[in-house]
Design a binder for these strands. Structure first.
Length: 516
RNA sequence: GGCCCCAUCGUCUAACCAGGUUAGGACACAGGGUUUUCAUCCCUGCAAUGCGGGUUCAAAUCCCGCUGGGGUCACCA
């Protein structure tokens, strides 16, 4: 039994696509499930980009989610280098082999000629395939053209009138008629390889056993199969998984459409939360995060476990009931047989629900660790963070309880860090500026002043007593106290809020609220 | 338009391959309970096999057609 080797081959675009991350996850899981290797290869054949800015976010996303690669950038491996831009000698050698064996030919036709051919075929409503004029050229003529510096490209000579059969691990049998396949360019005039060619050469050389990729690559497959066969390679197994759709649609989730996603009801909440949070973190314009990027989820405080769980459930299920899946469980159970064939929408609501589950599971100290950087970035606390400050943050996290869904939610605790609070005016009018309320608030404020100790149970008892004596509903004071001390209508238990603020600050804020 | 893929609640899916279930679960939504608000938690409800033919005692499940949706058609990856 040979080793399972899977790969994910991103091109350095400067961000990691959430849908691409799902494909990468399936590759990673399949490799790990079978004790194999997961390889990261960088498809940078035609781009001259800054490694740091273009590749950085991609590696960052993998590391954040804990999907470490066995071979690839920064970790190396026995088949290095893992950048296609550094592997051109392999493509050139393979090209030469194909030319020698007659599987590829030099095409001297111009772009204009090809375009015209294509147009004509279109007009006559017949499928376009190459006319292969260069094949008619005599050797002498070819030499002449070359000496004259006439540019040419190398094309694969597609065998006409034959059938390509793919036994895909997910789609089962898919067939193509080669008579309908134009001869693909595999090398440019300057000797650089094209995607389909470089991919085939690398997949073979890296000994990739399973090519797991999104179904939009299905049309590339017959060409790649032909190339593998012409090169005499052992064919990898192919598994075309469904692509990820934009929420509520059947269209492929695309980075180019982010602006229109802003209006998508399912995506709206994500955008809005980002608009609230990122400026506070000083991440506004320059970073330009959006929910198509993995980094968005990291920066807004999602947990890897939440994102991973959601990604795994797009197009895959363990059984008829299990929804909560840890990476560990996934590694133990992942199988391509249970990948569905239909494209699946990315559901932000479901992600949020998984996130809620995993955040609840997170040990308190890790929650605090996750929150602290947000408070630092928002300049609500400063570095180095003292033990005392950390304890204070911890007590807030405890008070927040399950209300803390994302780490960025800790920013809602702003009133505990600064006196510069924003009042929810509508609720302030309703709960504080209301007949009889200020009088009760003032009266109870005086009781708080002498209350010792200033603790949750003591406050609760005091409020109960006050309400029994006056016949006032506890809700009246509870709401009035929260609004006047935090400005917010929702949040931790009101006694927790007061305890967190301390007696002095609580009294001062009540006084200030009574004067508003 | 050519080629290719796909089709179960609003969404993600189970049951399909080896035909027989009141078509199950989760999210969302609605209602109720717990709670000082919110969140959590618990209960209840809503809600699907695209259409038409076959095959069969029996079809979500097997076959064909239709319709619909989508992907892809570069000297991009």
């Amino acid at each position: 039994m040979s080793t399972v080797r899977t790969r994910f081959a991103p091109s350095p675009t400067g961000y990691m696509h959430i849908g691409g991350m799902r494909t990468a996850l399936f590759n990673w899981l399949y490799a790990k499930r079978h004790g194999g290797q997961f390889i990261l290869r960088i498809d940078d054949t035609d781009q001259e980009r800054n490694q740091e800015t273009a590749l950085g976010p991609i590696l960052r996303a993998f590391r954040w989610l804990g999907l470490l690669w066995d071979e690839g950038p920064e970790v190396g491996g026995s088949h290095k280098p893992y950048f296609q831009s550094q592997r051109s000698h392999l493509y050139r050698a393979a090209a030469e082999k194909l030319e020698q064996s007659g599987h590829a030919y030099r095409d001297f036709s111009t772009k204009e000629e090809n375009d015209a051919d294509r147009k004509l075929a279109d007009k006559e409503k017949r499928p376009y395939i190459n006319i292969r004029r260069s094949l008619e050229l005599s050797d002498a003529k070819k030499r002449e053209l070359e000496t004259a510096g006439h540019p040419w490209v190398l094309r694969l000579l597609v065998p006409r009138e034959s059938k390509i059969v793919l036994d895909d691990l997910i789609r089962e049998r898919v067939e193509w008629d080669t008579s309908l396949l134009p001869d693909p360019v595999i090398m440019r005039a300057n000797g650089s390889a094209l995607y389909n060619f470089a991919t085939v050469v690398d997949d073979a050389e890296l000994e990739i056993s399973h090519v797991i990729r999104a179904e939009e690559h299905l049309p590339n497959t017959p060409i790649q199969i032909l190339l593998h066969e012409a090169l005499g390679n052992t064919l990898p197994r192919f598994a075309h998984i469904p692509y990820v759709c934009a929420p509520g649609t059947k269209e492929k989730l695309s980075k180019r459409k982010v602006e229109q996603y802003r209006k998508n009801p399912a995506f709206k909440r994500l955008f809005e939360r980002g608009d609230e949070v990122f400026p506070q973190l000083g991440l506004s314009a320059a970073v330009a995060l959006d929910p198509v990027m993995v980094e968005y989820y990291e920066r807004i405080g999602y947990l890897p476990a939440g994102v991973l769980n959601a990604l795994a459930r797009i197009g895959w299920s363990l059984d008829d009931r299990t929804e909560i899946l840890s990476l560990q469980t996934l590694v133990e159970n992942f199988s391509l047989e249970r990948v569905v064939k239909a494209p699946a929408g990315f559901d932000p609501d479901k992600l949020f629900s998984f996130q809620g589950h995993w955040m609840k599971e997170l040990p308190l100290d890790e929650k605090v660790d996750g929150c602290v950087p947000y408070l630092v970035d928002a300049k609500l606390i400063s570095e180095p963070v003292s033990a005392e400050t950390r304890e204070f943050v911890k007590s807030i996290v405890v008070a927040l309880g399950d209300r803390l869904k994302l780490f960025a939610d800790i920013l809602d605790a702003r009133p505990f860090f600064t006196d510069d609070i924003t009042f929810d005016e509508k609720n302030f009018d309703k709960r504080v500026r209301k007949d009889g309320v200020p009088a009760h608030l003032a009266a109870f404020r005086n009781r708080l002043e002498t209350l010792e100790p200033f603790t949750v149970p003591a406050m609760e008892a005091a409020l109960q007593a006050y309400c029994e004596e006056t016949g006032e509903q506890t809700g009246t004071l509870v709401h009035a106290l929260r609004l006047s001390t935090t400005g917010q209508a929702v949040g931790p238990g009101v006694y927790d809020c007061l305890a967190l603020l301390g007696k002095e600050k609580s009294l001062a804020r009540i006084d200030a609220a009574l004067k508003r």
